[in-house]
Every structure is written in C-alpha cells, then in structure tokens.
Write a protein that binds this DNA or RNA. Sequence first.
RNA 1: GGCGGCAUAGCCAAGUGGUAAGGCGGCGGUCUGCAAAAUCGCUAUUCACCCGUUCAAAUCGGGUUGCCGCCUCCA
Length: 463
Amino acid sequence: MTIKIFNTLSRKIENFTPINGNEVKMYSCGPTVYDYAHIGNLRYFVFVDLLKRILKEAGYSLYQVMNITDIDDKTIKRANEKGVDFHEISLKYEKIFFEDLEKLKCSRPDLAPRATDEIDFMSEMIQFLIEKGYAYESSGSVYFSLASYPEYGKLSKLDLSKVKIGARVDVDTYEKESPGDFALWKGKKDNEPSYKMPFGEGRPGWHIECSAISRKHLGEQFDIHTGGVDLIFPHHENEKAQSEAFCGVKTVNYWIHSEYLIVEGKKMSKSLGNFYTLRELEDRGFDYDSVRYMLISSHYRAQLNFTITGLKAAESTISNIKVFVQHLMAGGEGSVDLVDMVREHEKAFFDALMDDLGIGNALSHLFIIINNINSADPLKVNAATKEAVIKAFTRFNTILDISQLEMTENKIPADVNTLAQERYQARQDKDYSRADELRGEITEMGYIVEDTPKGFILRKMDE
RNA sequence: GGCGGCAUAGCCAAGUGGUAAGGCGGCGGUCUGCAAAAUCGCUAUUCACCCGUUCAAAUCGGGUUGCCGCCUCCA
C-alpha cells in the first residue's frame, strides 16, 4: 500500500517512497530527560507510534532511532538545584519516560542512544565543520556559520533577512560573527559538566546531538525525521544545516511534524496550572487506554484541545466499543450475513490511514461496522460475519492497540455462569426477589448480566 | 514588523467541486417483573461573514472578522 504523508519541507502531501526498497529508516527527536513527560510530549510520542504502526501495516520494515537528550541546560539546571550529578537526573527520568511509553502502548525505538554516549562522534563532526569552514571557534565555543550555508531557512520558510532577531529571546551576539549563528559546542562554564576536545573543553550544543546520532546510526541519507512543530525552527533547521554541510547531500527525505496539544483552549504552561502528566491523569482515575485513545484519535497535524471532558468522552467511547465486542463474542449464531459490509469498511479504515494518517476518517468506519451489526443484532448475525468482524477489529487493533478492542472470548468463570443460570431459572419461576439476589451476587463478582429474549449475556465489568 | 495555520451542531471532529462521516452529550422510543444495562431513532436545509468563478462551492478565487502558532536551545 502507498502511504501519503505531509512533508514539512515541501508543505505538501507526498507519496511516500523509501530510499532503499522496503526498508524505512526513521529518526525521531526524543525527550529531554529532566522531568516527567507532560501530556503534550506524550501526544507527540503517540503520534510517532501511530506512524510506525502504519508504516508496518503498509508492509515496510522499519528501523527507528530516537535520541535521549541527557545533557543540556535543563538537565544541568535541575541537577544543580538538587545538588546531584546530572546523570542521576537524566537516568531517573529516562526510566520514567520509557515506563510512560509502555503504559501508552507506544513501541520502543530500535535504538535510543544517549547524547553523552555519542560525544566522540559529535566531536568528529565539529572538527570537520571547522576544517571545511562551516564553523568557527570563538571564546571557547564553536559556532556554525550561517553565511557558509545558503540553504539555511528552507525547512522553516524563514527569510533571515526579514526575521527580527531577538524578537522573543535575548541573543548574545558579542562572541558570534553573526547573530543567527548557533552553537555546536558550548565552552566550559563553572558548575557545568564538560568534555575535553581538540577545539576546547565544554559540552555539546543541542542540535549537533541529533545530527551526529542520526548520521552515525542511520547513515548520511535516511527516510523520515519526526518532531513536534515547535522544533521546525530553530532545531531542525540547524540540524539540517549541520548534517548537510557535513554529509554534502540532502540527508532527510521526509520531515514530519506533529502539532501542538493545548489544554482547555490554552497553551499548556506551569503558571496556568494546566500542565498534566500521565500519573496525574492516572490519579484522577483515568486509565491508559482512554488517554491513548484520546491522543491517537485526532489528526496529528491539527491542534489537539485536551480537556477533561474530552478525556471522559474518550473513556465512554472505548467503553462502548468493549460492550459491543462482548455482545459480538456472545453472538454469531444467527443467519444474518454482513460479511461484505464488514470487509468494505475494514478496507476503508486502512485506506483512510494511508492517506496522511487519516485517523478520524478511519475510526468512523469502525463505528459504522458497530452500528450496522448492532442494528442487525449481534446475536443474529452468522458465524462468518462474526469471524469477519473479529478479523477486522484485530487488524484495527494492531494500529489502535486498546484493550477494549481485543477480540477475546468472554471468559466467564464457571461459578458466575452457574449463578446466572440459577437466576435465569428463578426469573422463569417468577421468583424475582431470588433473581435480584443472584444478580447482586454476580455484580459482586464483577460481572454484568443482561437479559435478552433468548436468555442472558454475561460480561465483565470495567476494572 | 515577517512567516504560517485554523474557523463545520452543545462539545470533539471527517470531508478540498456533486449536494454535510463518525464520536461524546442530550431528547424520545424499544426491551424488561422492576431498577440498571443494552438497544433503536432523532439531534447542522447548512459549513465565521461578504463578493465572485461554476450547471453545481463547506470545498476554488478575492476581501473582511476572529482565534492560534513560530520568529534562535519548547514535543
């Protein structure tokens, strides 16, 4: 299947074609591990997970590398505040980061190198860039010279001659040749970790980390580079400049960025108090599936307005899906045939995903299948239809990966089933007080019994 | 000041030329001994506003308004 995807470089939706046949090499900007990931970070990682799953569904083999930024202003600042080595901070939050990913069913990258483990290669790149005149040393730091690289600005569509330097951030210009030049290497400062290199003692700049790690582990040219939209400028623009100056070729074919997540209509910030982490949502009683569903179900290029109301809606939605699944698994012994309908929407689901990850459109086909089966009554569809739905939903779940979509047989403990049988008999005998008593016992055991004209259906209550 | 994006029901949201998907919520009904659950149906003559192109516009062009993002280390 051909995937269509929006490329930030062209600002157009393009047909995706890997460099090397069936193999896709992808680099994803990873976390700075200095604190708990917030829901906006997590939105990005869920998007990356969705993209990976769709690539695999389309038949590609995938190799993904994601950097772990363990040395930068934030990890150092946090370490100094706590009076500990910065590794102590970064290792702690790296571990928590991967736990969060796992909770949200985001598959791990194939390789996740830490910046501090790749400093030798960064050094090689920096030395080369200095030798070739792309970079210069000044006051102990090394800067990339924008003047040496005319392609600069193509990714972010910024015309530096028209940009107001320092419109939002103060820029130190005294030691740079030009205000737009950015640091490859930051000269040693007190209270900061440093490494001795031929061009001086210090620590790496942020952008060189991604250039070095992607070059080393994916080669000079690879297929996909992902990040949040906020990274387009300056991070990816800078990274692109360094990498292409070093490699002498176009290094990335598809730049793919996910939009911001906002909270209750406003940009998330600690001062507004609308800063959610996964564990805070957990404390409020939401489960991971609800969070995953909410984050995955809106288009990656649209701003996602995260609200508690919305999260509750997501919870209801997937809970309803689960009820349907349980009904279907109890049915399928009738004669109504809807196999063609199911197959048609199964195909449409994946067609939508291949079109620039059209998840909203795709999901509508899942619900259309549910509505059509429900209209016919899950108890009345034939075995072939039931099988078709199981097959379709199982495939859907290779993308969505929520427990509510798992097509497992209703596993009802024998004692619960016996109670339900007794209750059924009691109802036949019109001994309703006994029936209610038995229903109470079944509820106690965590099951819901539903009466139908033909008997009863048992299903497990949500935990 | 420069660059870019968005505006579809109570809320979320798909749709980019052929007559408004889907989800949540709400309302009404069905089933039921009752409660609950479940289920069925209904829920935008209309896509921010104005002008234009077209047989045909939410979709294309021009303009207006409003909101948002980026402009040098924030996913």
